[in-house]
């Protein structure tokens, strides 16, 4: 889902991390459960995020 969002706008970058292989990053973003989605270092959601919710989270992260 994040990948598809990245395709729609060059300003959107979507990175997926295999948490156990990147323990430092997982710790930095306090990953306790997966999947966990972090937007612009601040907004985060645990669990699967449907299209409309992810869009809402993106909007909230950039304050629109």
């Amino acid at each position: 889902m994040a990948y598809q969002m990245a395709m729609e706008n060059d300003k959107i970058k979507a990175e997926v991390f295999e948490a156990s292989e990147f323990p430092d990053l997982s710790m930095r973003y306090s990953v306790m459960a997966v999947p966990k989605t972090v937007i612009n270092e601040k907004t985060s959601v645990e669990g699967a995020v449907p299209e409309a919710s992810l869009l809402a989270e993106i909007k909230s992260a950039i304050g629109i």
């Binding site: 994040a2 969002m5 990245a6 729609e8 706008n9 300003k11 959107i12 970058k13 979507a14 990175e15 997926v16 991390f17 295999e18 948490a19 156990s20 990053l25 997982s26 973003y29 990953v31 997966v34 999947p35 966990k36 989605t37 972090v38 937007i39 612009n40 270092e41 992810l54 869009l55 993106i58 992260a61 950039i62 629109i64």
Partner: peptide, 15 residues
């Protein structure tokens, strides 16, 4: 999404 002007960096952690 096309209307977004600011950079958005999405990181998804999975196992």
């Amino acid at each position: 999404l096309a209307d977004i002007q600011e950079p958005v960096h999405i990181r998804v952690f999975v196992t």
